[in-house]
């Protein structure tokens, strides 16, 4: 069984995002870019299934600009067997990402597609669900535990009410939550090995992905600021401040 991992490059989660003064976007020049944290977790889960002999091959795929190659090499260094780079210079919205991933799915026929539950740049949380729908296959989103046996997977999901467990027939789409696993660190020799692993490049136009029906972003603004409040010196002062506001 092959596993396809959707592996997006995003602005690193430690970067303090600044909105450009003219509202045309956020500052991305010179900021650190990394794998979406949820996608590292997706890749780690795929690699564990590979290590256990439950998968035969792990493929990382990204849809992004030409300079995403180094990002995919990181995925290969972590342990993926090969990589697919769908090249697009335009920012990719979830519907387009799902349509492009579907093309890869049709070609590769994976038993599981693992994605992050959300990309921490657009915070959309859509792509996995859209892919499952377009593919006509099961989805188990926000996974914190995955067990694979033959043609089924049992997935525990983090939902608002608690933990939900679903059983899905394979092939299926699974999206990862933070507590699924802790991604391994890349070792230096693996970076060398990754250089010779296969990395296929396809222009998004050549995949035949329908465009259109997308959202247009017209303005970026910084969030409303909360003003810094006051420091109280002790519990008594805190309690009287809260009482004055009618909160206790």
């Amino acid at each position: 069984m092959k596993i396809l991992v959707a592996y997006k490059r995003v602005v690193d989660y430690n970067v303090r995002i600044q909105v450009k003064p003219d509202g045309s976007g956020v500052v991305t020049d010179g900021v650190k870019l990394s794998a979406n944290p949820f996608d590292d977790i997706a890749l780690e889960e795929a690699l564990r299934l590979l290590d256990k002999g439950l998968a035969t091959e792990v493929i990382v795929a990204t849809i992004g600009p030409a300079d995403c190659q180094a990002h995919l090499r990181n995925g290969l260094a972590m342990g993926a067997n090969r990589a697919i780079h769908v090249v697009s210079d335009q920012p990719i919205q979830p519907l387009t990402a799902a349509r492009a991933l579907l093309k890869l799915v049709e070609k590769e026929q994976p038993g599981i597609v693992l994605l992050g539950k959300q990309a921490i740049d657009d915070d959309a949380s859509q792509t996995g669900q859209m892919l499952a729908t377009l593919w006509g296959r099961p989805q188990a989103t926000f996974a914190s535990k995955v067990e694979v046996a033959a043609d089924k997977a049992t997935v525990t999901r983090e939902v608002d009410a608690g933990l939900e467990t679903l059983e899905v027939d394979l092939p299926a789409v699974i999206t990862t939550d933070l507590r699924l696993n802790e991604p391994r660190f890349i070792k230096l020799p693996d970076i060398m090995k990754a250089k010779s692993k296969p990395l296929e490049t396809i222009a998004i136009a050549d995949l035949g992905v329908a465009s259109g029906d997308l959202l247009t972003t017209t303005h970026y603004a910084p969030p409303p600021k909360r003003s810094k409040g006051v420091m109280v010196k002790d519990v008594a002062e805190l309690v009287s401040a809260l009482k004055a506001k009618g909160l206790v």
Partner: peptide
């Protein structure tokens, strides 16, 4: 919520439209 986040993108995909999240 986790309910809507799980479900609504599927509806959008069936209708062939993008979704506005949050």
């Amino acid at each position: 919520t986790t309910f809507g986040k799980d479900l609504m993108p599927c509806v959008a995909a069936l209708l062939g439209v993008a979704q506005v999240s949050d």
